[in-house]
Amino acid sequence: MTEQSLHRRRFLLGGAAVGAGALLTACTSNEAPAQNNAANVANAGANSQPGTPVTIGFSAPAADHGWMAAITKNARAQAQKFSEVTLNATEGTNDVNQQISQVETLINAKVNVLVILPFDGKALTAVGQQAMDAGIQVINLDRVFDTPLAYRTWIGGDNYRMGVNAGNYIAQQMKAKNIASPVIGEVAGIDSLPLTQERSKGFKDALTRQGFTVGPRVAAEFTPESGEKQTSNLLQSASKLDALWNHDDDQGVGVIAAINNANRKNFLMVGGAGSKNAMNLIKSDAEPLKATVLYSPSMASSAISLARLLGQGKGAGDFAEHEIPAEITTYSAVVTKENVDKYMDVGFDS
């Protein structure tokens, strides 16, 4: 989960839960553009139809984390939906030099488009730029390269808004329960990472705006083991707790285990990322977990759809612009018992 985070992601889409089936209905719509809307590009109706054959190279870190495993799984599944797409995927690795070598192999194979989720954005920047210089368009997925010269389009999640939406949901619930001065805890990810810092900042900013503050806080390591250990420490130090935000549903398996071991269920909990396990718990309404804030690996499906369109020289069908945007930030929707069925299709195994 290490990454260099993009500071300005100006292009927001309306749902992180873009399913494994498509980038947007916009990209694959079968409906013809309205006759009286000259701004609509003419390729809208053709995008879902098979087009020019496209070979897409794909490179990502090792699938040693539920979210990361879902990234590769979603990419492969999406590529299979298009008869004209050939996916040339490398074996996932957390060795920076090996990933660079794998991408260079894809460049030498002259794939049409590259989709790269770098283990380390800074370290993979040069090879991304090498691909662009060779005329191969690059979709930079989530962990951003150091310069836009290394990619044609960036698509990824919004860490700051994850925190904001988690904070807003908790604040609303506290006000609904008439809790004037709630004790709100936080189980963060690895504190040295920009993504963790952004999530925590968004959480703090949202609570501050609502007149609340962040209480006891610990940092885990995006693993169930670290989540259980750090949550146990937090619960021991906080005799009273009204709400808790856990940044990551994979480490959330351990967080919930610690809560159950301590028999502490008299508070509400919000998760992060959107695992299938978390969604099932939310749906059952039997645990403190009442919501999770999406950071969906379905972005990999969208990246493959984008790569296909770029390889075929198409734009996003319902957009007036003729070209695929340079930046796409998915939205961190809040999944609750009321809407969980809508988002189950993008839940991943934790």
Score class of each variant (00 low, 15 high):
1 M>Y: 14
1 M>N: 12
3 E>P: 08
5 S>N: 05
8 R>W: 10
11 F>K: 09
13 L>H: 05
14 G>N: 14
16 A>V: 07
19 G>F: 03
20 A>P: 12
21 G>H: 07
22 A>F: 11
23 L>C: 06
28 T>M: 07
31 E>R: 00
34 A>D: 03
36 N>A: 12
46 A>M: 04
52 T>R: 10
59 S>G: 13
59 S>M: 06
62 A>G: 00
64 D>Q: 10
66 G>F: 01
67 W>G: 00
67 W>C: 01
68 M>T: 10
69 A>D: 15
69 A>V: 10
76 R>F: 08
76 R>N: 13
81 K>N: 14
87 L>M: 15
90 T>Q: 09
92 G>R: 05
93 T>M: 10
94 N>Y: 01
96 V>R: 06
98 Q>K: 13
107 I>F: 12
108 N>I: 02
110 K>D: 02
112 N>K: 02
114 L>V: 03
117 L>N: 01
117 L>Q: 00
118 P>F: 05
120 D>C: 05
120 D>N: 07
123 A>K: 11
123 A>P: 05
125 T>W: 02
126 A>G: 10
129 Q>R: 13
131 A>F: 11
132 M>D: 05
136 I>M: 01
140 N>W: 09
146 D>W: 13
146 D>K: 04
147 T>Y: 04
148 P>F: 05
149 L>G: 13
149 L>R: 12
150 A>T: 00
151 Y>D: 05
152 R>Y: 11
152 R>V: 00
155 I>R: 07
158 D>A: 14
159 N>R: 09
163 G>S: 12
168 N>G: 02
170 I>T: 01
170 I>Y: 03
170 I>G: 02
172 Q>R: 14
172 Q>H: 09
177 K>V: 01
179 I>M: 04
180 A>D: 07
181 S>I: 03
185 G>D: 01
185 G>P: 00
190 I>F: 12
192 S>W: 09
197 Q>Y: 02
199 R>D: 02
199 R>M: 05
203 F>K: 05
216 P>L: 04
216 P>H: 05
217 R>I: 12
219 A>S: 14
225 E>D: 14
228 E>L: 13
230 Q>R: 14
230 Q>N: 13
236 Q>T: 09
244 L>V: 01
246 N>T: 15
254 G>S: 09
260 N>L: 13
261 N>A: 12
264 R>Q: 11
265 K>H: 15
268 L>T: 15
269 M>F: 15
270 V>Y: 01
270 V>C: 00
272 G>D: 01
273 A>T: 07
276 K>D: 07
279 M>T: 02
282 I>A: 10
286 A>L: 11
287 E>M: 09
290 K>A: 13
303 A>P: 03
306 L>A: 02
308 R>D: 02
310 L>F: 06
313 G>V: 08
318 D>Q: 04
320 A>V: 01
320 A>S: 10
322 H>I: 08
322 H>L: 03
324 I>C: 04
325 P>D: 04
328 I>Y: 06
328 I>L: 00
333 A>S: 15
334 V>Q: 04
339 N>P: 04
339 N>F: 08
342 K>E: 14
345 D>S: 12
